[in-house]
Every structure is written in structure tokens, then in C-alpha cells.
């Protein structure tokens, strides 16, 4: 074997070894490296029983209620299969709106998610106003593509 072939084999072996270990590490991390849990994942019992976690989903259109004269807002977060009511007092991100994706941090108190932080999770669609795109809403795992428009018009 020429020295060049030897070096090729050494590097190929190294790449295969690193690739394999990363592949198994990623497989183990699949479904674990989650920045947020969906309402369905919470219903499956994957949320911690005590302490904060992040809940992600779409703001159900028609569910947003503001208490007059206060910074408190209530809405329902859904992934199309399960829904969780959320209450939050504070400043909402500019992109907060019905149908928008949202990641809330807080904890579940008697079935209501009491949030202390709300972040907007928008979709990958960019276009001028007035065009309908299925990428307007973010993809929430387990939900239907097309966001809440698909959810509310679903039979």
C-alpha cells in the first residue's frame, strides 16, 4: 500500500468513526433536544411535574382575551390535537397574533399554563401582504401543515 493510500484509509476510518458516533449520538438525542413541548407532548406526560418548561403551539384564532385595564392576556395554545389555555401578564412580542406560533415559558397550574415569558415563533414564509402561503404559520410537530387556517377549517 502506498503511503498516500494509507493516509486515505486512515482519514476514511476516522471519518467513519466520527460519523458513526455522531449518528448514534444524534439518534439518542432525537426527540430530546426540544426547545419546547407541544400540547400533545404535554398530554403524553412528557412535561416535568414541577418547575418551568416551554410550551409551543399556535394561538387559536378567536381565543385571545385581554382583561381591560391590565397587561393580562388569556389565549389557547393548540397543535390541532390538544389545546392548553395560557395566561400571561406582560409585554407580548410584536408578532403575537391569532394563528401565530408562540413559545411560552412557565408552568401548568390546574390545567392552565401560567407563562412568565412569551416568544413568537414565525414561519419560514416571506411575501408581500395579501398572498396566502402555507408557510405563514410555523410548523408545529404533529399539527397540520398550513397552521390554524387548516385547523379551524378542518371538518
Amino acid at each position: 500500500m502506498t503511503p498516500r493510500r494509507q493516509r486515505m484509509f486512515m482519514l476514511a476510518a476516522m471519518i467513519v468513526a466520527v460519523g458513526a458516533s455522531v449518528f448514534f449520538a444524534l439518534r439518542a438525542l432525537h426527540g430530546e433536544l426540544l426547545y419546547y413541548l407541544t400540547p400533545t407532548q404535554v398530554a403524553e406526560g412528557r412535561a416535568p411535574t414541577s418547575g418551568n418548561f416551554r410550551l409551543g403551539g399556535l394561538v387559536l384564532p378567536g381565543s385571545v382575551r385581554r382583561r381591560p385595564g391590565s397587561m393580562t392576556v388569556r389565549f389557547v395554545l393548540t397543535d390541532g390535537h390538544h389545546s392548553i389555555p395560557v395566561v400571561f401578564t406582560g409585554v407580548l412580542p410584536d408578532l403575537f397574533r391569532p394563528g401565530q406560533g408562540v413559545v411560552a415559558r412557565g408552568d401548568l397550574v390546574k390545567g392552565t399554563f401560567v407563562a412568565n415569558e412569551i416568544l413568537a415563533k414565525h414561519g419560514p414564509g416571506y411575501h408581500p401582504p395579501g398572498i396566502h402561503s402555507r408557510y405563514n404559520a410555523p410548523h408545529i410537530p404533529g399539527s397540520l401543515p398550513g397552521g390554524t387556517t387548516a385547523l379551524v377549517t378542518r371538518p
Binding site: V18, G19, V22, H30, L34, Y36, P138, H139, P141
Partner: peptide, 20 residues
């Protein structure tokens, strides 16, 4: 190996960052 991980991170895991 981090390059494909970055690219597919938005598909493999639930992230705040939007998809590709």
C-alpha cells in the same frame, strides 16, 4: 459534521428558529 447538523437542526428538533 456540525454543518449538516446546523442545516437539519430545524427539522430534527423543535426549535424557536423557523425552518429552511
Amino acid at each position: 459534521v456540525d454543518v449538516p447538523i446546523i442545516h437539519y437542526s430545524v427539522d430534527w428538533w423543535q426549535t424557536l428558529h423557523q425552518g429552511a
